[in-house]
Design a protein around this nucleic acid. Structure first.
Length: 612
DNA sequence: CGAGACGTTGCTACG
DNA sequence: GCGTAGCAACGTCTC
């Protein structure tokens, strides 16, 4: 038989899937995304055709896990099992992500902190358990998946390769390589959308080719959410022989080379689908809490019992299906007379995730300032000293530092704490590149998610989505508002545990006598503040104003010379930040610019097409 | 085209 | 303790 393959789109069990399908003798079945009724018909024909093909052979499916580390609501798994003689469930451990980097500022690889590596290992273990309960197991291999997967396709005589669609550029490059190899071998590739609720490409198409950049317009575009599919088949056929493939055991952290971990406190959130489902049930148990949830009202300093669900790491790895979460929420809302609404509600939180996935999928260079059509060009400082202080929790602002220590130890912070430290590093105080802070989050957060992380850093640095740069979080009063006693600070910064509450957020203002009594001399045991916030924040606002003006003047594409000139101009106005305790006075002058204006939307459209 | 409303989560002062 | 006004003032969307 002569096979060739084409890309097409067809619905499977009402889920829209992007798949590669077999076609016989180039009889491609092309299905336009517009008409659902013809979909169904053609789906039927397609399936019939497939059955005709497959009935002549024993189907071996390879189910490639990357994210989507779950058995519930997993369309790739269902597809792999469909009529298959054998299913090979594979995960490839990529040393690029896992090998210890001793030069890194905290334990972990160069890309991933040890908390997230542990979370992944736990998730894999749980996935293996789930598969074993169905007569299968997780097959682990080590190396570069783009070479390993094609080898396995040959070795195992695979006819069908299934994996969840992934929007990240890194994943796209990886998956395209594997797809290409698979198609050359005549292997059918099925890549359903199940990491997000909605199909980002579909939303972009509905919006006319570019992603919606406001939450409201995004919400208007999305239709009804697809519902989860059922649980995994109760039996998944595992072959007895692996034809010499180099399978490895699930490594421990120790095996990976993380053997001298002397950290005194680890993340309290273990990975895995079982944990995710338990956590989901616990979160949804209190129906009043669910229907009254309003994100901005949460307490970022609550750490014994966090103010949010902390389901984000489970969504990140796909231990929990976003569709399932969404459906469960809707059920609970439907039983209540009143319930909060997006953007602040729990449903709203899931939609934010969708929003950023869509924005990131349709925006070139989404993770950079330069070459990113939606990102304001701002002359951020490239100051590694300031960056180090921030990352290490040594800025001298206890609220900021405690949050950064929580990030390092737990791999998690409350959303508002993330706001506070991100604002502080960028437009609020230190004026350091948002990409630098993004990298730190990306490595350390157990829920670190490429689309959401980059989107939020642009948001917080007022580089995109959000532009009210004069609204700056105070590193002195923001934490105090929620936790006047400073319990959060005392927990994560034990050096300050005996500092009286009156000084806990501004310990440098404590009289020396008080500092002595608290056994914490500022400048010796705990750093002096790196900037005078009242001065620094005003300078930042000025810089933002000038940068916005230049951005507008140059239609979002200032030349390097423009940026340099602006930097020079601004540097003259910056005060010394070294000894901020000796509060300097500001001298400011308002230089007015004559700026030409032009429509932003058309500009963005132009820039978008420039990069295509 | 221009005006006005609005935007997930700012701050301080004041009643 | 909580809600509100004033602060200064961005871009986007709608009418």
């Amino acid at each position: 038989m002569n096979f060739s393959a084409v890309i097409t789109t067809l619905p499977l069990s009402s889920q829209h899937l992007r798949v590669y399908c077999y076609v016989v003798h180039d009889q491609s079945v092309s299905i336009s995304g517009a008409r659902a009724h013809t979909h169904r018909e053609k789906e039927h024909t397609q399936r019939k055709k497939e059955r005709e093909i497959f009935c002549f052979m024993d189907i071996h499916s390879l189910l490639w896990f990357r994210k989507g580390l779950r058995l519930h609501d997993n369309p790739a798994l269902h597809k792999a099992c469909e009529g298959a003689k054998y299913v090979y469930p594979v995960f490839v451990l990529d040393p690029w992500f896992l090998a210890p980097d001793l030069s890194a500022p905290s334990p972990g690889s160069s890309r991933v902190g040890v908390n997230r590596i542990r979370f992944l290992l736990q998730s894999l273990k749980d996935l293996d358990h789930g598969l074993q309960a169905r007569g299968s197991r997780l097959l682990l291999l080590k190396g570069d998946p783009t070479s390993i997967i094609p080898e396995l396709l040959k070795k195992w005589n695979i006819r069908r390769l299934c994996f969840e669609f992934d929007t990240e550029p890194y994943a796209q490059a990886r998956d395209n390589k594997v797809k290409e190899a698979a198609l050359k071998l005549g292997v059918g590739v099925f890549s359903p959308i199940s990491h997000t609720i909605f199909d980002p490409q579909e939303t972009i198409r509905k919006n006319g080719g570019t992603p919606p950049l406001t939450y409201q317009s995004f919400c208007k575009l999305i239709g009804k959410a697809p519902v989860p599919i059922g649980d995994a088949p109760s039996s998944i056929p595992l072959p007895e022989d692996f034809n010499g493939a180099k399978l490895v055991d699930l490594p421990s952290l120790n095996d990976l080379g993380y053997n001298n971990l002397e950290q005194e406190e680890y993340t309290p959130f273990p990975g895995g689908e079982s944990e995710a489902l338990t956590r989901l049930e616990q979160s949804l148990k209190d129906k009043n809490w669910v229907v009254e949830f309003e994100k901005p009202k949460g307490d970022p300093t609550a750490f014994i019992k966090p103010a949010t669900t902390v389901l984000s790491p489970y969504l990140k790895f796909g231990c929990l299906s976003a569709r399932l979460f969404y459906t469960r929420l809707k059920e609970i809302y439907s039983q209540s007379k009143t319930y909060t609404k997006p953007p602040v509600s729990l449903e709203g939180q899931l939609l934010w995730r969708e929003f950023f996935y869509t924005a990131s999928y349709g925006t070139p260079n989404f993770d950079r300032m330069t070459g990113n059509p939606i990102c304001k060009q701002i002359p951020w400082k490239d100051d590694d000293h300031l960056l180090d202080l921030w990352r290490e929790g040594r800025t001298g602002f206890p609220w900021i530092d405690a949050a950064m220590v929580q990030l390092r130890k737990w791999g998690w912070m409350h959303h508002l704490a993330r706001h506070a430290v991100a604002c502080f590093l960028t437009r609020g105080d230190l004026f350091v590149y948002w990409e630098k802070g993004r990298d730190v989050f990306d490595r350390l957060l157990i829920d670190s998610d490429w689309a959401i992380n980059n989107g939020n850093w642009m948001w917080l640095s007022a580089s995109s989505f959000f532009y009210q740069y004069h609204r700056i979080y105070s590193p002195l009063t923001f934490g105090k508002k929620y936790d006047p006693q400073g319990k959060f600070v005392r927990h994560f910064l034990p050096v300050l545990k005996d500092m009286p509450s009156a000084y806990i957020y501004e310990p440098w203002t404590a009289p020396l006598e008080v500092q002595r009594k608290a056994r914490c001399i500022i400048g010796r045991d705990y750093p002096k503040p790196v900037v005078d916030h009242s001065v620094a924040s005003k300078q930042c606002m000025e810089m933002m104003k000038a940068a916005y003006a230049l951005d507008k003047e140059t239609e979002g594409q200032p030349s390097l010379e423009d940026i340099d000139a602006l930097k020079k101009k601004l540097q003259g106005k910056q005060l010394q930040t070294k000894d901020a305790t000796a509060a300097g006075q500001t001298k400011r002058k308002n230089e007015k610019e004559s700026s030409s204006s032009s429509g932003r939307s058309t500009k963005q459209q132009r820039k978008m097409t420039d990069y295509k």
